[in-house]
Design a protein around this nucleic acid. Structure first.
Lengths: 142, 142
DNA sequence: TATTGTTATACTCTATAACTATA
DNA sequence: TATAGTTATAGAGTATAACAATA
């Protein structure tokens, strides 16, 4: 067996590619990519966040954030309103249209992921996610 | 808990980022990135492969392959020699210097990955890798 | 006519630095 | 003086199309 499969990094990258490629196709009709969808999720969960708040949480550069929010605003998936408490920043809010897209895409995401992990039992799938979350949470702490 | 962590794709991407970022730092002194290191591994395992062979296996575009091999050749990590059986293609071969770098970096990779997965038990780590390989192998077949 | 490798080119993604408006 | 957001710009990384050499 190739060394490629002895490395956690390489195999994780390959599997990530599978998820990313399939879900990207699902998102294409909505004119957004996976990163932009991630931002939409966060804005839905934390309404009135600023661009900086979202950028920090998702580890996106604040200049990159501008074009992402521009794009989602142009599609009318979110609105920018000046924060009255601090007029330097915006309050980002998801629109009804954005909320609809969010839910539609979530269904597509679940379907896409079920397809990718179809070779795993329910127990194995749950275990996989738990292990990945354990790794991620561990480094968030440190 | 955020929807981000309910998605296999997002959490796999986050963990992949951890592996990638850490190993990239280890590779920097050798002047190569993770993708280029992957190519070096393949050339070591299948000497005399053509650029197309490697490109196909690692799902890299053949035009992208040119610059990767240019780079590794400039560093004297591999050699290009015309294939006598088919002079359109090259036989790619790792050099002694390339082999040395390969092994040095492999040690660095193992150390880097042990650090990232330090919150898992040996059994959990083995299980994680098995599950990821199972997903990848499954789609390779289809 | 098809294939391997190459080049030119363009497009996306991202990051750095300098700017503006607000604090 | 510092911060949120913006713009201009440049650097990766990647993909498409046209080309040369060889089959």
């Amino acid at each position: 067996m190739s060394r490629i499969f002895k490395s956690y990094g390489f195999i994780t990258g390959k599997v990530e590619q599978l998820f990313e490629m399939d879900f990207s196709k699902e998102l294409a009709p909505y004119n957004i990519n996976v990163k932009q969808y991630g931002v939409l999720i966060k804005i839905d969960e934390k309404p009135n966040s600023s661009q900086k708040d979202i950028a920090k949480e998702l580890k996106i550069d604040r200049t990159t954030m501008v074009s992402i929010v521009d794009h989602l605003e142009a599609l009318e998936y979110l609105t920018r309103t000046k924060n009255p408490q601090d007029r330097r920043s915006y309050c980002l809010t998801i629109t009804a249209k954005g909320k609809q897209i969010l839910e539609d895409c979530w269904g597509a995401l679940e379907q896409s992921e079920r397809k990718i992990i179809s070779s795993l039992s329910d127990q194995e799938a749950r275990l996989l996610k738990d292990l990945l979350i354990k790794i991620f949470k561990n480094q968030e702490e440190s």
